[in-house]
Design a protein around this nucleic acid. Structure first.
Length: 277
DNA sequence: ATGTCTTATTGTATAAGA
């Protein structure tokens, strides 16, 4: 059996219900990690999403901004909501998905702060917040890993809008974007520290050569987004190294950027061989 | 500085965040 996990920044789940239905139909993910749901939990379209095949849901939303969720065909348990930098701002939720009697997977949905425009943490508090957020997560994973490792623990998957495009091939122009937030050296260094602290494997780059491009975001501001193709890979799926032999494929559902009422992000997907987890 | 989309509001135009 193949397990498909998706991560999608929807930019409002209520505006994206038709798109969600199309993603469910076209890609048939078993588990979908959502970001920027932009809705309080009481108003999350839980009934509609359950009707589309995702009755198991873990949600952490706030009014107007941010908001993360995990929706699943498999049962979710041990749901935890995390607050980073002293803010309960709907940026991290995780749960244990039970795939079958013998297999569990810890799934995280994460929304890293965008960081504003000016790439100077001393002058731009939003950028300082982004870096502090990544640093706090790094410390948490470093501490959690050392506790978890002796007992093993279930395999892990960390998915979301990380708002960082780490490699030169993760943006349309490394030269033009190296001083633009999402592709600055300090962010990339912070993200790499987080990756090392959790011993994560980038499950999408795993299937790409180092210079191969696979974008997950194109700005709304370019009407000719497809021709200009000034995209970035901001959305990521990382897995614990024990999952490496189980990885079967990775892709981005680029066609979703062309649908009516698109998000500026498209879903990113990985296929995992359940037997090998 | 600009482009566009989404949410929210001392609301039918404007601001903020991305």
């Amino acid at each position: 059996m193949v397990l498909t996990v998706a991560s999608w920044n929807v930019n409002s789940i209520r505006r994206r219900l038709a798109g969600f239905e199309a993603v469910a139909r076209e890609a048939q993910p078993d588990i979908i990690c959502l970001q920027e749901t932009k809705v309080v939990d009481e108003l999350f379209p839980a009934v509609e999403i359950a009707a589309l095949g995702y009755p198991h849901q873990a949600i952490s939303g706030i009014k107007a901004y941010n908001g993360v969720a995990i929706v699943s065909k498999f049962p979710l348990s041990d749901i935890e909501t995390m607050s980073w930098c002293g803010k309960a701002d709907g940026r991290h939720i995780f749960a244990r998905a039970t795939l079958n009697e013998a297999t569990e997977l810890e799934v995280h949905s994460l929304y890293v702060p965008a960081g504003g425009d000016k790439p100077d943490p001393l002058k731009n508090p939003k950028f300082a917040h982004k870096l502090a957020f990544l640093t706090e997560l790094t410390h948490w994973w470093a501490a959690r890993g050392s506790v978890q490792r002796p007992g093993g623990g279930p395999p892990r998957l960390l998915a979301g809008d990380f708002n960082v495009a780490p490699l030169p091939s993760d943006v349309w122009s490394h030269e033009r974007l190296k001083n633009i937030i999402t592709h600055t050296e300090i962010e990339i260094t912070h993200l790499e520290s987080l990756r090392r602290a959790g011993d994560w494997l980038d499950a999408v780059r795993h299937f790409l050569s180092e210079d191969e491009q696979l974008f997950t975001w194109w700005s709304y501001r370019a009407k000719d987004w497809e021709d200009a193709d000034r995209g970035r890979r901001l959305d990521h799926i990382w897995v614990s190294p024990d999952m490496s032999p189980a990885l079967k494929s990775a892709s981005a559902l680029k066609v979703a950027r062309d649908w009516d009422l698109p998000s500026d992000h498209v879903p990113v997907l990985v296929e995992i061989d359940e037997k090998l987890i």
